[in-house]
């Protein structure tokens, strides 16, 4: 079992590349790997409960996928933290650094 960190900086409605990234994360999860998905920049738009995004919904149901959203990016975009999926932890840059530097976890920026 490997550990991955995906840093998703893009809005899923900006490019279909984001959905491809979500699919890769799901495939890794289905193969038994532990995955952290950290949303930053426009990537945090997907964190809103009202956002129709079935691919992210699927990821949130998986036990070995942990989803976080950058608080700075959330605030910058005027997103109310109450409107974020309860399964998504809104946190700061220190958390992202902890995951990046975690022994054995592979960081990937998208």
């Amino acid at each position: 079992m490997s550990k991955y960190l995906f840093i998703e900086s893009r809005d899923p409605f900006e490019t279909n590349d984001v959905r491809d990234c979500y699919h890769l994360i799901k495939d890794l999860s289905d193969s038994g790997h532990d995955v952290v998905l950290f949303l930053v920049q426009n990537g945090v738009f997907a964190a809103r409960k009202k956002c129709k995004n079935s691919e992210l919904d699927e990821l949130l149901k998986k036990e070995n996928i942990h989803v976080y959203a950058d608080d700075y990016s959330i605030d910058e975009r005027g997103i109310n933290k109450e409107s974020v999926y309860s399964q998504i932890n809104v946190t700061g840059m220190d958390t992202l650094v902890d995951f990046t530097m975690e022994d054995g976890r592979k960081p990937i920026w998208h």
């Binding site: 900086s9 990016s73 700061g92 992202l96 650094v97 530097m101």
Partner: peptide, 13 residues
């Protein structure tokens, strides 16, 4: 926005 994020990340690191 990548630039601001990477500056923040390096600072925290």
């Amino acid at each position: 926005a990548n630039t601001a994020t990477v500056f923040r990340m390096i600072d925290s690191t």
